[in-house]
Design a protein around this nucleic acid. Structure first.
Length: 899
DNA sequence: CAGTGAGCGAGCTTCCGCTTGACTT
């Protein structure tokens, strides 16, 4: 049989014997490699990841299920949480290709990854392809010729319990995400999201910011001495003689250092806390005094190499050393992978194949000498608890490694490859060894105080793996692993002289903000998220506006504070840091056949023994105080931060001011809040109304820029008569042609003169004014919209009369607007159906029922059949009370609950 | 967060995890 499909990868080993075997893997690049290892009777193709999933939105729901109350969830919660699967739109083509290839195959090998998701992909493939030929499950953990050939010889059956565990995971994530997100839409802001992973990630960032806000810095002082060791016979002059040592204790009492203070700035333990005055005094009293070495402690020093990269450690190092975001690292790595330079980049494994170990060792020996290679290969064991280890570690591909220079790569790909290459080589090299030394020096001050100084040194005798690779640092003050700190040769009782003794002031610092890399690391340690999702989690919390970047630091927005506060108060167990860990335990039990998924999902969703389930929690919307969850006090003030629909603002007894978007929450101190209130005068005074003498100001308001007049303050004891006369200030929105910065007093007076009286018609006054829907003319209760704002000042009574003589342009008048297309008569009802352009875009109507076109519909191509289906769906919805105006109540409720 | 005057087809937003391109910036 000739290869029907050019994209399918056929083996190269000449004509095969026996039947054709179709092997399906997840990744196209992997398919290409594996095809080269198998005979010509193997056809290797990929699924390109998952091929089916729960419907993500209404348009994906098959018509048959549209009416079901659970259709949007895609999970029939009342019938054992039966999931509804649809083939992903972007995989239909690939599924068709696989079906076609299967027609010519005599055997099907499902060779997806050996982990929970891979097992599920294999199962979905079997369900969708419905093979009539024997099906085998084939697994391997490294892509080498031997491993692949061995895998083909030892297939097994699908593990349906593992598939069950995956399905449970999927359903739980759907219920969480699609039930909790709408609560946020109603109580905080539309389009927000909540989920098992992103909500915990957001909470971590928010909690760190809370710690920073609560942090109280403590000041402390210490003393740094410059010392000189005695000259020795036989010195060649290349050994250092001077060194630094820091004050450790005075009269046996240890000096307080930064780590001795709590986050509240309180000193822990009975220590000597030096302030500036005492530190300077002591330094003076020690200057010029004799010192002597009182103790020397030498210890051997060894440092083991770092394990090979997995996804998270690669992201961290690429961030530290190359400044890459998680997303950029993954996209560069993807290219390297596709072009055969590295192994798979989404992995939690640090295991190297035997061929890779051999390649690393021989290359390290060639580059650094055989003395840099340990006798036995190094084997690394993962510490990630929920690791699924379907892949190898991230390493250079192939059975011998290309040096970066041999790859011909450039720029970011070169740099990332070089990082991976060096790390892999180094992981098979010897430990670095040396000596560390700790020295104590004591002297007596002029006042008789016993002062002890300490210094430590590190000498590396053999660099080992550090020759090839040194890990980057998050803390700029920390020492790199290859950094030596040489001390002079010293012996006990050696006299040393102090060339300088200086007091130094310090203050404790709040915990550092997360970066993308450190947040990913934290999530991995807490077993939350997977290698394939770490980068996109960062994308999600950035896109939702939960965090923003300041340099590389992740700063939470007040929106995130509001969302996290809501979740903590009303869904605490869902954002508990152990939630995922408990879920994993349960999924493992399901995979072992020791737990029943329906019971577990039922408890989660419907509750048990008085514990509320998710369903009940998301229904009790009245329980959630929208204003409360969106309010935070500013420390030490009576000012509240509130998160409104238009962003965060400060509220002090009704007086309000916006918070700048880029202001980090921990920078909003009482002073800063005060400053914002003082700056509030973005209000610009334009001058005084020549008639009333009232000041006229331009302001930025809820509905955009506007002008208003400032009325004189009412005297305290106003009588009734005056109160009645007390007028509201005139206000008017700026025209679109004006701006807050350039509007003049003349403009303002013109605007405030509205409404303009044009005259009288039919015994009623006719006025021109600006309103909610733009400029219009009004006659009694009748009105007509105007074309442009300028017409407000130019329209005559005569022109207005003409307008009132015509029917309204919109509203009922719209019926006379010509349709975009006529689709003909609907067979079911006999009514003519047309397509019209409306306020929300194109829709079809039979004159009574209207239905919007969906995303997949086009005005030009929609058929009467499709229109009829849309109308039928709409009629049913209205009849069941689910659609139409009855549903506008949530809006009111939202507004009410927020005010 | 200023508060003015209609009457109109709503429908959608969202999760996590597995994969690439096809898109736009």
């Amino acid at each position: 049989m000739p290869a029907k499909n050019g994209a399918a990868k056929r083996g190269q080993d000449g004509p095969g014997t026996g039947g054709i075997r179709l092997v399906i893997v997840e990744s196209p690049a992997k398919a290409k490699t594996i095809a080269g290892y198998l005979g010509a009777n193997y056809v290797v193709e990929s699924s390109i990841g998952h091929i089916r999933d729960l419907p993500s939105r209404a348009a994906d729901i098959p018509p048959k299920y549209k009416g079901e109350p659970w259709a949007k969830l895609g999970v029939d919660v009342d019938h054992d949480f039966e999931p509804l699967y649809v083939i992903n739109a972007d995989k239909k083509q690939q599924v068709a290709k696989l079906k076609k290839l299967l027609q010519d195959a005599d055997e099907l090998f499902l060779a997806t990854d050996e982990d929970r998701e891979g097992e599920a992909i294999a199962w979905h493939l079997r369900e969708v392809l419905r093979p009539k030929v024997p099906v085998r499950r084939m697994v391997f953990h490294e892509i080498t010729r031997d491993a692949i050939r061995a895998a083909v010889q030892a297939p097994r059956d699908l593990n349906l319990r593992l598939v069950d565990a995956q399905e449970t995971r999927r359903i739980l994530d759907r219920l969480y995400g699609y039930e909790v997100s709408p609560v946020l839409w109603k109580k905080v802001m539309p389009k927000l999201s909540a989920g098992r992973v992103q909500s915990v990630a957001t909470r971590l960032v928010v909690e760190r910011e809370r710690e920073r806000i609560a942090f109280v810095s403590a000041g402390y002082w210490d003393i740094l001495g410059q010392f000189i060791a005695p000259a020795r016979d036989g010195d060649k002059g290349d050994e250092p003689r001077d060194f630094q040592a820091r004050l450790v204790s005075v009269d046996g009492k240890r000096i307080a250092q930064g780590r001795d203070f709590t986050a509240q700035g309180v000193l822990r333990g009975d220590l000597r806390h030096l302030d500036e005055e005492s530190a300077r005094g002591l330094a003076d009293r020690l200057t010029g005094r004799p010192f002597a070495v009182t103790s020397i402690e030498r210890k051997p020093y060894t440092r083991k190499p770092y394990p090979p990269f997995r996804t998270t450690t690669l992201q961290q190092e690429a961030s530290r050393k190359l400044g890459f975001s998680a997303k950029h690292t993954m996209s560069v790595a993807q290219k390297l992978y596709e072009n055969g330079f590295i192994t798979y980049m989404r992995t939690d494994s640090i295991t190297l194949s035997e061929t890779a170990i051999a390649a690393a060792r021989s290359q390290a020996a060639a580059l650094y000498g055989s003395e840099y290679i340990p006798a036995k290969p190094r084997v690394y064991q993962t510490k990630v608890k929920n690791a699924q280890e379907a892949h190898e570690a991230i390493r250079p591909a192939g059975e011998t490694f290309r040096t970066p220079g041999e790859t011909g790569l450039s720029s970011d790909q070169f740099r990332l490859y070089e990082l991976i290459w060096k790390r892999t080589i180094a992981s098979q090299m010897k430990d670095a060894t040396g000596q560390s030394v700790s020295v104590r020096i004591t002297g007596t001050s002029t006042a008789g105080e016993q002062a002890e100084f300490g210094a430590s040194g590190k000498v590396i005798n053999f660099y080992g793996f550090l020759k090839a690779y040194v890990e980057g640092l998050d803390d700029p003050d920390a020492d790199r692993d290859d950094r030596e700190r040489r001390l002079p040769k010293l012996e006990e009782d050696d006299p040393v002289t102090a060339s300088a003794v200086n007091a130094e002031g310090h203050s404790t610092r709040p915990p550092a903000r997360y970066t993308e890399a450190s947040l990913v690391k934290e999530l991995e340690e807490r077993e939350i998220g997977r290698p394939s999702t770490y980068a996109s989690i960062m994308g999600t919390i950035l896109d939702r506006g939960y965090v923003f970047k300041k340099g590389t630091a992740l700063v939470p927005s007040y929106l995130a504070f509001a969302v996290v506060q809501l979740l903590e108060r009303h869904f605490f167990h869902l954002v508990d840091y152990d939630f995922t860990a408990r879920m994993e335990d349960c999924l493992d039990a399901i995979a072992r056949g020791e737990a029943e998924r329906v019971l577990w999902l039922r408890r989660f969703y419907f509750g048990e023994d008085g514990d509320e389930g998710l369903k009940e929690l998301v229904s009790d919307l009245d329980e959630i105080d929208a204003k409360g969850v969106s309010s935070f006090p500013v420390k030490g003030t009576d000012i509240m931060v509130r998160v409104g629909r238009y962003g965060p603002y400060l509220d002090r007894a009704g007086e309000r001011v916006n918070i700048p978007e880029d202001l980090a929450p921990d920078e909003l101190t009482a002073e800063k809040a005060e400053e914002l209130f003082n700056q509030m005068s973005t209000d610009r005074e334009l001058g005084k109304d020549p008639e009333t003498r009232h000041p006229i100001v331009a302001k930025a308001g809820r509905f955009g820029p506007y002008v208003t007049e400032i009325l004189p303050e009412e005297p305290a004891g106003t009588d009734k008569k005056r109160k009645k006369a007390a007028a509201k200030p005139r206000t008017a929105s700026l025209l679109k042609s004006m701006s807050l910065e350039t509007v003049t007093l003349e403009d303002a007076l013109k605007l405030l003169s509205l409404p303009r009286v044009l005259g009288e018609l039919d015994g009623e006054p006719v006025t021109a004014q600006n309103g909610r829907y733009g400029p219009y003319v009004k006659k009694g209760t009748d009105s007509r919209s105007l074309q442009g704002e300028e017409e407000l000042f130019t329209i005559t009574l005569e022109q207005a009369k003409e307008l009132f003589a015509q029917p309204k342009q919109r509203g009922r008048g719209a019926a006379s607007a010509p349709p975009l297309r006529e689709l003909g008569v609907e067979p079911a009802t006999g009514k003519p159906v047309v397509v019209k352009e409306g306020r929300f875009g194109p829709y079809v109507t039979d004159g009574e029922t209207n239905a919007s076109l969906r995303k997949e519909d086009q005005v030009e191509s929609i058929t009467i059949e499709r229109a009829s289906a849309l109308l039928a769906e709409r009629r049913e919805k209205v009849a069941s009370g689910g659609g139409g105006k009855a549903k506008t109540t949530p809006k009111r409720r939202t507004a009410k609950s927020r005010s």
